[in-house]
Design a protein around this nucleic acid. Structure first.
Length: 975
RNA sequence: GCCUUGGUGGCGGAAUUGGUAUACGCGCUAGUCUUAGGAACUAGUUCUCGCAAGGGAUUGGGAGUUCGAGUCUCCCCCAAGGCACCA
């Protein structure tokens, strides 16, 4: 009988389902395997969708065989725009199309033979389900986590709805690619930022075992920063230092602006300050801003910019100076100009920043454009740790002001360097600045003294102030040098022989410019001394404070601490943590979503619908078309909208916005555990039994939306006492895409979509399952290859044919085969646990090839396979190819399903080979391979190896310096 | 620009702690069978020199540590994904 997958697959799918094979939830050990449930689109599945489902199915069957009760459910995330758009076009209720699509999806999935328990099927559009979605919202409303807001929000003019920050892709609507505009609309918002700290911190908790890349994406998205929020008073009279002599400054009541910075240590370098166009101060101080017309024009212009224009293009920065007002730096009482500029974001921090062009790239750019002063307040701190100049421990530092002078030849492109031969280092001309001496004078003096050249044509300061710690070998002490750098050009060869004392430690050498880099390490000079020269860039790293009053010489971190303390003491500011993540804009102006269970009463305001009245059902409607006015289509149904206030009984109107698509998926994994419960969201005991989800598999594109939202809701439910774990998903694996054969994404547009039904029709579900797991590392995107399926089909054919070789009567105990079999059991077990399905399958292929060679193709017709060996092969193959494994299992005479058996265990006694191939290397190169007993001694191998002709060629007449012996692996002869 | 993950044959990709690089599969080449095409089977297949025996090179590039480096250290290049004026 030949292998006919079409026949056996259908047969077993029916038998498994009718026997309820997967529904034994009584075992002591439990395992919850979860897939991200699909949106049932009209297009049906393509071959990429099932990849993750196959993986969870492999793990589910594997865990069943290991004696677990496995919960492996499936459902539908069915609210969403495509169904609604289809409804608008075809004038049918979205639920009709949804129902049809679900049927198609289900049929397609069933062909794979998955272990889903369809009794637990979930549909987010089912009122019995969304009742609880609404219930969670109500609880949030009760706890003050759901609130109404009138802030400007992202509006997609094409989808005619509001979008959350998470729904944007580079400022465009993630769904339709339309440019989003800012619109002021009343919205329901969830206070997700209240959970930001926990959402971030718990990423590192042992309850989460996720791929680093996804955790990192969430960390980026949450975007925590620690800084200082402080007040600067507004001076309206063009205030200057002389007037503001009070220390600490007193703040006129209400006449100040709050600023946020993470770099308070740079505050003495502040040369201006900026507020965002949305900042309320502009309206408040309107009368004092003498150029308000100009400011107003700017505000209008920036309001008309899209998000894309304002942020993504990183256009040249623009801004307008607010004439007539200034702000006062509390640390030195200096007044600096205040600008409005849209490179400062209104929604983050306080919407106002201090600007330190010397130490912030954006401020630097702006300062260059508007010709604002650039003042250094941080000096880089260099610490020599390597070579002869490395700082010596235990020695005190001798602090000096020094200059580094780069001396250029009078006509050649060469520079003067010093070779400190005795101490083994090289440098430019360096020297100390004497008391009362100007740095520039010191530089000129050093050039004359040390080089002997007298004709100084020009001298230019390059870069800023740099602090440098090193060991000064010629003085025998650690030096802390406060350095500035000068470039000196010589005018001629005018020369006076230098004093011997000046030059006894070094000799001078002219080095060509292009060879300078090889001669001495100029990287540091380049990196640090040129910081402010020619205006290339700002120095944004930490360092040592300079020009900073009493804080001068402190290191950045310490300065931030002390300066913040000073602000606190004077009630001018405090530490502040900010997050990039915003609250979740939770309402949509569309039809096909969960109604928000709120009633608006003129007297009582927004009132929650009483729990016993849930669910608030979606009403029938004539027209699904969004209105575009910011009202949902529900607003037109007077019968539904007009209701009574649950609190006072007076007239009230229902909330007409609906929830976003992400609502239903934020908690669905809980409902699978207890899908039919009318009383509670989930039974408490069942929740304890099954949560958290042991394995969650899905696409990486959900890293910052679904996975963040679900964690947020879960933590809320945890605080509510509904769940007992603080994190929902223990292990998360992300599934790599399957690309089309041409390497592009599968899409109708390219006409390169592979339909799984056809693949199953041609090769069978087992071949397809096997191929998708064999393609490569699970998380990686890989192109589909139909030829690859041919390969896995051939492999299954081999397995099928092997059944004819089972015969215990004639079988012999074959040590080699036993070893390979047990090694394979061990590898497959470990690989499934670690999601390395591709190598598990390759090992299965190796085993089957060996069986085939040993039994099917053996010259002796009496070579037969032991039944128990074949059974073990079927068992470890069964999670990947369940139908063929079950069929062969029962053909062997078993009456019970293979999935009620026990997973085989690799026995140690079989895992070691008796003989191994030992590699003989000469100087690390392989020259010979010897078959030796596994416990062979070094001396035995050495003797045999040295007698080998192949080895002799290389060792003859040479002295053997050393022999390295690695038991069971190799011997290396070093000559 | 920043973060994350990667870079190994014609292709997808293997390679415990540093210890035989290229497992397994696809493709390709030759042969057997076949009216033919295909399928199946057998043998070969990293590159290179060589009739062969055999030699040499090789894991993005360069340096280093080591008896020995795909694996460890430093520098650089490239690709994919994420974030992006967050002060």
């Amino acid at each position: 009988m030949s292998y006919n997958p079409k026949e056996i697959e259908k047969k077993w799918q029916e038998r498994w389902e009718s026997a309820g094979l997967y529904k034994d939830y009584s075992r002591a050990k439990k395992f919850y395997a979860l897939d991200m449930f699909p949106y049932p689109s009209g297009a049906g599945l393509h071959v990429g969708h099932p990849k993750g489902y196959i993986a969870t199915d492999v793990v589910s069957r594997f865990k069943m065989l290991q004696g677990y009760s496995v919960l492996h459910p499936m459902g539908w995330d069915a609210f969403g725009l495509p169904a609604e758009n289809y409804a608008i076009k075809n004038k049918v209720h979205p639920s009709v199309a949804t129902e049809k699509n679900i049927a198609t999806f289900k049929k397609q999935l069933e062909a794979f033979g998955f272990t889903y328990d369809w009794d637990r099927e979930i549909d987010t559009t089912d009122p019995a389900y969304y009742k609880w979605t609404q219930w969670i919202f109500l609880k949030m409303f009760e706890k003050g986590l759901a609130y109404e807001s009138n802030e400007p929000v992202n509006w997609c003019p094409s989808c005619k709805t509001v979008l959350s920050n998470e729904d944007l892709e580079n400022g465009l609507c993630e769904r339709c690619g339309t440019q989003v505009v800012q619109k002021r609309l009343r919205q329901w918002v969830l206070r997700m930022t209240d959970y930001a700290e926990r959402l971030l911190a718990d990423l590192d908790s042992p309850e989460i075992n996720w791929e680093e890349s996804i955790k990192e994406q969430q960390r980026n998205w949450i975007g925590r920063s620690e800084g200082t929020q402080f007040k600067m008073s507004v001076a309206t009279n063009g205030g200057s230092t002389s007037i503001m002599e009070v220390e600490p400054p007193t703040l006129a009541e209400g006449n100040y602006i709050e600023f946020y910075t993470t770099r308070l240590d740079t505050v003495f370098g502040m040369t201006y300050a900026v507020v965002a166009p949305e900042h309320p101060i502009l309206e408040k101080l309107k009368s004092q801003i003498t150029n308000y017309k100009e400011v107003e024009d700017y505000l209008i212009a920036s309001q008309n910019k899209t998000i894309l224009e304002r942020t993504e293009l990183q256009k040249e920065k623009t801004g307008v100076k607010l004439e007539g007002i200034e702000v006062v730096n509390p640390f030195n009482n200096e007044a600096v100009p205040l600008f409005v500029a849209d490179y400062v974001l209104g929604g983050y921090g306080t919407g106002a920043v201090m600007a330190v062009p010397a130490h912030d790239e954006r401020d630097f750019e702006f300062a260059k454009k508007y010709d604002l002063p650039i003042v250094q307040s941080i000096a880089p701190l260099l610490l020599e740790t390597q070579g002869n100049a490395a700082v010596r421990e235990g020695l005190d530092f001798d602090r000096r002001k020094t200059v580094v002078v780069i001396v250029k030849h009078w006509f050649e492109n060469k520079y003067f360097c010093l070779d400190w031969q005795k101490f083994g280092w090289k440098s430019f001309v360096i020297g100390g600045v004497e008391d009362g001496e100007m740095n520039e004078d010191a530089a000129i003096r050093e050039v004359k003294e040390e080089t002997g050249y007298q004709d100084i044509k020009s001298i230019t300061k390059i870069g800023g102030n740099v602090h440098n710690c090193f060991f000064a070998a010629h003085k025998g002490l650690n030096r802390y040098a406060d350095t500035e750098c000068y470039l000196v050009e010589l005018g001629s060869d005018q020369f006076i022989e230098p004093d011997f004392e000046e030059v006894k430690n070094h000799i001078g050498v002219w080095i060509e410019e292009e060879k300078l880099g090889d001669y001495l390490s100029i990287d540091l000079h380049k990196k640090y001394h040129s910081i402010f020269s020619g205006g290339e860039s700002a120095y944004v790293e930490d360092g040592v404070l300079v020009n900073s009053g009493v804080y001068t010489d402190l290191k950045s971190a310490e300065a931030r601490e002390k300066m913040t303390v000073w602000l606190e003491e004077n009630r001018l500011g405090q530490k502040k943590v900010n997050f990039k993540m915003r609250d979740w804009i939770f309402s949509r102006q569309r039809y096909w979503g969960e109604p928000i269970p709120i009633v608006h009463c003129e007297k009582c305001g927004a009132v929650g619908v009483p729990e016993e009245q849930l669910p608030v059902r979606l009403p029938e409607v004539e027209n699904y078309e969004p209105t575009g006015t910011g009202e949902s289509p529900l607003a037109t149904i007077a019968d539904w909208v007009n209701t009574t206030c649950p609190k006072c009984g007076g007239p009230a109107k229902r909330e007409t916005n609906t929830m976003p698509q992400w609502a239903g998926s934020s908690w669905y994994y809980l409902r699978y555990i207890d899908p039919k419960n009318d009383e509670r969201l989930i039974d408490q005991q069942l929740e304890k039994d099954w949560m958290p989800v042991d394995l969650y598999v899905g696409g990486a594109e959900h890293a910052t939306r679904h996975l963040l939202y679900a964690r947020f809701w879960h933590k809320f439910l945890f605080d509510l006492g509904v769940v007992t774990t603080s994190e929902p998903f223990k292990k998360l694996m992300h599934v790599g895409l399957i690309l089309a054969q041409d390497g592009r994404k599968m899409s109708k547009r390219w006409n390169n979509v592979i339909n799984p039904d056809e693949v199953i029709e041609q090769f069978g579900a087992d071949s397809m399952r096997l191929y998708e797991m064999f393609m490569g590392p699970f998380s990686q995107s890989i192109a589909w290859s139909t030829n690859g399926v041919v390969g896995t089909r051939k492999f299954l054919e081999k397995v099928w044919k092997l059944q004819t070789k089972v015969n215990n009567q004639y079988s012999t105990d074959n040590k080699k085969i036993q070893t390979l079999l047990h090694k394979t059991i061990k590898k497959v077990t470990g690989d499934i646990e670690n999601f390395r399905f591709n190598t598990a399958i390759s090992q299965l292929m190796i085993l089957v090839n060996a069986f085939e060679k040993e039994y099917a193709k053996s010259a002796t017709t009496k070579a037969h396979m032991r039944k128990e060996d074949y059974e073990k092969l079927l068992l470890i193959l069964s999670p990947f190819a369940p139908h063929i494994a079950e069929e062969l299992w029962q053909q062997l005479g078993h009456e019970q399903s293979i999935f009620l058996e026990k997973w085989p265990v690799a026995e140690n006694q079989y895992l070691k080979d008796e003989e191994i191939e030992m590699v003989v290397q000469v100087n690390g190169k392989v020259r010979e391979r010897l078959i030796v007993a596994i416990d062979v001694t070094e001396d035995e191998v050495k003797e045999t190896a040295l007698e080998s002709e192949k080895v002799k060629v290389f060792t003859e007449g040479k002295e053997i310096k050393k022999v390295i012996f690695v038991p069971e692996k190799l011997i290396n002869i070093v000559i």
